[in-house]
Design a protein around this nucleic acid. Structure first.
Lengths: 218, 218
DNA sequence: ATAATAAGTGAGTAATTACTCACTTATTAT
DNA sequence: ATAATAAGTGAGTAATTACTCACTTATTAT
């Protein structure tokens, strides 16, 4: 509870006041780069200061603690982008294509792919710290669940009612889609396993085909 | 090259000589526990020493560096268990059930589930460090590829020849299976997202059904 | 123009880090 | 039994860590 207040305060400050100094911006920029590259625990504040060409004290003037810097990097991204995006995505996709589930899936996948492509580094940080940092995981996972998963479940239910989807629990379906798409993004953007010989469009279509119809012939 | 020699030496030493001291065993045990819990970077050697009730010097007597301790924990597990297991799994599974691909998948999944269940902590360490530690990733990923993936590709090709599987590139199929099963294991054993309301047997069957036939009704 | 506030600095600090080394104690080979 | 070797110790060390604080410089409000 008190934690949430603090975090909300950080976000409010970062968003509302808006007047980030040049140095402040440089610090966050550099922190994102280094955290993504080497992980939070392997990046020292002195390293960030040097790379951002700023006195180490400046970091602590603005962010107080190293932990706070991480949160200032991650949380605005999460708490701002995700829900807004989610809202946008789901309403837009659902209204535009009243088409089949496959079309919904394709739109969702392309949208997310584009989004993560634009935010590779923060995605890398979030994934790494989600595994490494217990506190952060406990903070973020429920947030994901509340904002993303229940929306997907809704959509799945809609299509299930239309008789387009098989009859297993919605949250199981949602979980498998999430695992597959999430796994695809992680292997591509975090592990950077490049599948160089196949183009992206084809890869997406393969993924969708797999999700829709599985591996069995016919 | 020189790295590989060193690592092989570590493994040879740990395996062949076999005469691990009580203290040595305690150190490795404790390191596994702490690395799994808090991650390598967040665990200090003094912490390990204290928890293992050993002088800090003893750790360095045996392992030389902290990095080496990590390798001594991970590599014997990887380089020993994985190939042996893989061999075992693939020959056994393939000879016993000359059945359909679904049966192969079921056997593989259950086998791996059992294996990881028995080695939760090391699995946690490997996954975490695979994302966090560039060096280790570069060392391990090719090893995985050589030992596991090409075997799966072989099996997939067999079943493709029998006309049981759809006609997309084998390595794409293999990658999607790996992503899905890997993602399932990670979400379960590392993120520890518990799906408390469904029993394991049913969950596995859902997973297999999804892989085989996808989400589309009929 | 001036006062008040915020931004920025960098030397300094206590704590912690991985690691060493001279030494003692246990184990093994003879 | 004795010598040789390996295992174990813990005080010590240089480097690094996150963070502080007295101070200077820039920005804003009046």
């Amino acid at each position: 509870m008190s934690d949430d207040k603090l975090l909300d305060a950080i976000i409010a400050q970062t968003k509302l006041t808006k007047k980030q100094t040049d140095k402040q911006q440089k610090i966050v920029e550099t922190a994102i780069k280094l955290f993504a590259e080497k992980g939070y625990a392997n990046t020292s504040t002195s390293e960030i200061a040097k790379a951002a060409m700023v006195a180490e004290g400046t970091i602590f003037r603005h962010y107080g603690t190293k932990d706070n810097l991480l949160l200032s990097v991650i949380l605005p991204f999460i708490k701002d982008s995700i829900p807004t995006m989610a809202e946008e995505v789901f309403t837009e996709i659902m209204s535009k294509n009243v088409g089949c589930f496959e079309d919904f899936l394709r739109a969702l996948l392309k949208n997310r792919l584009h989004f993560i492509n634009e935010n590779r580094e923060i995605f890398q940080i979030v994934v790494k710290e989600l595994l490494y940092n217990d506190e952060l995981r406990k903070e973020l996972l429920p947030f994901f669940a509340d904002n993303i998963l229940h929306r997907i479940t809704k959509v799945i239910n809609t299509y299930k009612d239309r008789g387009e989807l098989i009859d297993i629990p919605s949250h199981t379906i949602q979980r498998m889609i999430f695992t597959l798409i999430g796994g695809y993004f992680v292997s591509r953007f975090v592990l950077q396993l490049d599948n160089c010989d196949i183009d992206e469009e084809a890869e997406i279509e393969n993924l969708i085909r797999f999700i829709m119809d599985g591996l069995r012939k016919q």
